[in-house]
Design a protein around this nucleic acid. Structure first.
Lengths: 197, 197
DNA sequence: TCTGCCATGTAATATGTTACATGATTGT
DNA sequence: ACAATCATGTAACATATTACATGGCAGA
């Protein structure tokens, strides 16, 4: 149940139309909660029906016409409740790790190339994040305005740092995996092994 | 499309019944691909129909009777193809990061407690992983048998290390987030801000 | 027999993905 | 008129989650 809350957050930050939301989900918000435009339109319809948001009057309900939404008090209350609630971290679901485990059984054919490809992708994402950090969260220069970052700034920076640390972790792990793979070339493996990990 | 391959891998490691698979998905395999018993039974039915696996003869097709499956050559071929194929890393989807971003807009009420709770959960998971590492992948003692770890052992260890590094990353990040939160107590935040991160 | 657990399964719902359809606007 | 693009949406399907249903077996 995170998508509606992601949309409420985005709309509180700035009232938007469905397509604008879609674009923002390709950039900032999508870095930790991705969504396609179909999901977004469906969810906008539900949120409107449940009274959490409403379309601005300027927009007539016609098919090809832009339709902008804003959050109503009920929507803000819903979001506040969600933030202060409990929700366990989701169990990890990573296809690459699964494939490595499968490779331990059926062989590593083609795997090193795939690891290199993933490494390049994670390095690119990491660079994108650090660019954003340098642009939006540069340390205050001396003699600048006395006001430090706001609470909101600090929270957003923390979220970005989580993304950075995650990417850094994958880059390091993939580098290590590749160096191990090059030490010992691929070979047929034993048919079975311990189940412990 | 990862669940069927997760099941094939598990069955290659050891032929099992649905419930046994469910238990293994709560332990080793589930550490990077979780699944409920309903998903597993449904997928076992599909895999059997498509000729990737078959039930061992010992098991009659009765409702309350145990039914064990083994992988057929077609199943092994399917898995091999999947391992050597391409699949992009999934975009991150993390509700906690989303909630922090929402908190930047509606306030951090109740958030520090939740961060502490998550920190404890990740610390526990990390301890579980390092226990497994110490048990199953202890460094070879000097003077032991000359054979090093097999390729399969190294792959399984790599997968476990990814889990360890992921948990360590979350533990560090949550610790940092909490120390920042204690520096500046929660307060109502500005209604809008930059969208950049 | 009754309780509890093992084991397999169904049904309903929620969420996510892929492909396609339609109208509006702008530039040539 | 035509093409390209913006913008909103439908339909079909795939996957995941939650709650519940059914039968077998073992021991009190």
């Amino acid at each position: 149940m995170s998508l509606p809350h992601a949309i409420l957050t985005a709309l509180l930050e700035r009232p938007s139309s469905g397509l604008e939301l879609t674009r923002r989900f390709d950039r900032s918000i999508g870095y930790f909660w991705s969504a396609t435009h179909q999901q977004i339109y469906r969810e906008l319809g539900r949120l409107e029906q449940s009274g959490c948001i409403r379309a601005l009057k300027s927009a007539q309900p016609a098919r090809g016409r832009k339709k902008e939404y804003e959050v109503l008090p009920a929507g803000r209350a819903e979001l506040t409740g969600w933030v202060s609630g409990r929700e366990d971290p989701r169990p990890v679901r990573d296809p690459l790790l699964l494939r490595m485990r499968a490779a331990a059984v059926v062989g590593t054919e083609g795997l090193p190339d795939e690891l290199r490809r993933h490494l390049a992708l994670h390095e690119r994402q990491l660079a994108e994040y650090t660019d954003i950090e340098a642009r939006d969260f540069a340390p205050r220069t001396e003699g600048a305005e006395p006001a430090g970052p706001t609470e909101a700034d600090r929270l957003r920076h923390l979220v970005l740092r989580a993304g950075i640390e995650l990417e850094r972790m994958w880059v390091e792990w993939l580098t290590e995996a590749l160096s191990e793979a090059s030490t010992a070339p691929a070979a047929p493996t034993t048919p079975a092994g311990p189940d412990g990990a």
